[in-house]
Design a protein around this nucleic acid. Structure first.
Length: 625
RNA sequence: CGACCCGUAGCUCAACUGGAUAGAGUGUUGGUUUCCGGUACCAAAGGUUGGGGGUUCGAGCCCCUCCGGGUUGGCCA
């Protein structure tokens, strides 16, 4: 039982004894005492005042008296306004530390016999990974680690969006302009290689479109549009003809691609052939996708991202159809006159949703229903977590509600791990405007910065080049992870590439540095870390550190419950910060023997906690840096 | 037009889910080392928590309303 539970229970007893009243123990609020007041833990007495029918100060004092008599580790108390501050004995905290130091699994929950399938990454296979994917991967990976620490068995899976018009565009451009080039022949990473053809396609399409804008057909379309509301509004706001015209052509582009473009036509034809299973098209498609996978694989390895299984959309996009047809028979779904199949989710405030097109083919949710079924059959998971951006909040509400409505028990365990967009200081990332931050470029940039500042410090001159490279990767990739994970996932965040490479302040580097410092200390100490404490009195900073280490378990539980790594990131930083303060104010190796041994033990416990906490964020520690 | 998310210091983010005088980083200004790793430590300045109303012992957090930003509601994925 932890301290808070003990305090709650005894406070409940106190209320029973003092006021002859029953009070739910989970309504008793226990906080850490804020640093302006004397004490370790605080009971908020306001909720009890009504029952006691006394002033808050009186209630606090009475309960304080009671607790001090019953619990021998409480050495004193004071009541300020409605807050009962309790002070604990040094012996109590030393005993806590002893327990933590002796338990290598401290903070990690034993197995709870529950299984989780966590989906993350989810790239399209027509272009390389970008900053948005990095947030996804770093977040998904960390939540997986956090859930493991909470006792779950976690299976990490990926979904590859490997079909559709986008990849056909890359394929077409390669066919037309590639001259048989390969990633090998051009020395390019496969995903970038394929992505370049996607860009090439759009460039060619743009040229084609510009030429078309001077044709009679374009003029007719423009003239039809001009009397419309949108155009009139622009005219009223004083825009000149040229800018109105350019606005029109911007918004008309999609329609142009579908109606007039020769390239658009060819891409669509290729998609039709793909769906018909055309051997040549399928061959090219596999070739290009394999190039992309080779490229992705490199990025995943570098980031330390792994998957137990990859689901390919091309192998699952018709899945779920069978389920839908069964439900149609059962009457939980219905068919319109045109043949399309729908489900009524009005009761869930989600309107009617389409399940099958009128031509009988699957839509997005149908596919996800099928995949959910397949996963459940394989893993029998208790929870299913989807790491996907918040633009799909609605989709996952529909998925969950639909599965629930058709009687799938596992629907309850579905959780959309939703996260906000990543913006740049200059605004949104827009692929059209070329402001997308490429994942590999970003990693290179940050690792280069790590190299630069580490070499400048001159502390690793005896490292081999392999050791040095490994170190720069640990620092650089840790910096990216930490920068992203310290923000609550559901919030939109601004990623400043220049700031993310800064290695001072609230960064993983600061934390890693604190860890390395402790390792240096242990090397200088030269003996085994003691396993026995011979002191009886604590300095305030020592006590603060023990309290922080003691909070690790609670923090892991909260992070797991909320699927929120930012809790861990904040905690880790504060722990390192507190340690540095301790380091700065108190001497460790020069203290007397008993104090030295104790402080070494404490420092080592802090280091282990830092290592575990960073591990939950996917960040590695290093003994020297 | 609905539904959902967000709005906290110049900037980037916290606030133990309703508890004490809203905290960190960064930037600005000033200070600390005969000592274990200065990528460190300390201090100052910086706030009507978007505005207004309500609920109660107590609100950044809950309710209503307005303002601003975003996402979504398409037989796209």
């Amino acid at each position: 039982m932890n301290i808070i539970q003990i305090l709650k229970q005894h406070t409940q007893d106190a209320i029973k004894n003092l006021y002859d009243a029953d009070f739910e123990s989970n309504k008793i609020i226990i906080n850490e005492t804020i640093k302006d007041y004397e004490g370790d833990m605080t009971v908020v007495v306001f909720p009890i005042v009504k029952i006691a029918r006394q002033k808050p100060e009186q209630v606090g004092d009475s309960i304080g008296q009671y607790l001090q008599e019953k619990l021998d580790f409480i050495t004193g108390f004071n009541t300020v306004k409605g807050f009962l501050n309790l002070s604990f004995s040094d012996a109590f905290w030393l005993d806590k530390l002893n327990g933590i130091a002796a338990n290598p699994n401290y903070g990690m929950q034993p197995s709870n016999d529950q299984t989780v399938v966590l989906e993350y990454c989810g790239p399209n296979t027509n272009k390389p990974l970008h900053l948005g994917h990095i947030r996804n991967m770093v977040l998904g990976y960390s939540v997986a680690e956090i859930l493991k620490a909470n006792g779950y068995q976690v299976h990490k899976v990926n979904i590859l969006n490997d079909r559709g018009i986008a990849i056909c565009k890359s394929m077409l451009a390669w066919q037309k302009f590639g001259n048989g080039e390969t990633p090998k022949s051009t020395q390019k990473k496969g995903d970038h290689f394929v992505g370049n053809y996607y860009v090439k396609f759009n460039k060619e399409l743009n040229n084609e479109y510009k030429a078309w804008q001077n044709t009679e057909a374009a003029n007719v379309a423009l003239q039809e549009w001009l009397p419309g509301k949108a155009a009139q509004k622009l005219a009223e706001s004083g825009k000149d003809d040229a800018s109105i015209k350019s606005t029109f052509f911007k918004q008309y582009k999609n329609e142009y691609t579908n109606k007039y473009s020769a390239l658009g036509q060819e891409a669509r034809e290729m998609l039709v052939k793909w769906e018909a299973g055309d051997v040549e098209v399928r061959g090219l498609w596999e070739q290009m996708n394999n190039w992309v996978y080779e490229g992705f694989e490199q990025t995943w390895q570098r980031l330390g991202i792994d998957f137990e299984e990859h689901y390919k959309e091309s192998e699952h996009y018709e899945a779920g159809k069978k389920t839908v047809l069964e439900e149609l028979d059962k009457g939980t779904m219905y068919q319109k006159d045109d043949g399309s199949v729908w489900i009524d989710l009005e009761a869930e405030k989600l309107d009617h949703k389409i399940m099958l097109r009128k031509d009988g083919t699957s839509v997005y949710v149908t596919q996800d229903i099928g995949i959910a079924e397949a996963r459940y059959n394989k893993y029998k998971m208790d929870k299913s977590i989807y790491t996907v951006g918040d633009e799909q909040n609605y989709h996952f509400q529909v998925l969950k509600a639909t599965l629930d409505k058709i009687g799938r028990d596992y629907a309850e365990g579905i959780h959309h791990l939703s996260y906000g967009m990543v913006d740049l200081p200059t605004g949104k990332m827009k692929s059209r405007e070329g402001t997308v931050v490429d994942a590999d470029d970003l990693i290179d940039e940050v690792v280069a910065k790590a190299k630069q500042s580490t070499e400048a410090s001159g502390k690793i001159e005896d490292f081999t080049s392999e050791q040095a490279t490994e170190l720069f990767e640990k620092i650089g990739i840790g910096a990216i992870r930490f920068f992203i994970l310290q923000v609550n996932p559901q919030k939109r965040m601004i990623f400043d590439p220049a700031k993310s490479v800064e290695l001072e302040g609230m960064t993983s580097t600061f934390v890693q540095y604190s860890y390395a410092r402790i390792q240096s200390l242990l090397r200088k100490y030269g003996k085994e870390v003691p396993n026995e404490i011979k002191i009886t009195q604590l300095e305030p900073l020592e006590r603060e550190l023990i309290l922080m280490v003691n909070n690790f378990e609670k923090t892991v539980l909260t992070a797991g419950k909320e699927y929120d790594p930012s809790v861990i990131a904040q905690y880790t930083y504060h722990l390192a910060k507190t340690f540095n303060k301790f380091w700065n104010e108190l001497s460790i190796l020069k203290a007397d023997e008993a104090t030295k041994d104790f402080r070494v033990l404490l420092s080592n416990t802090v280091a282990q906690t830092i290592q575990k906490a960073l591990g939950l964020l996917g960040i590695k520690t290093t003994d020297r840096m």
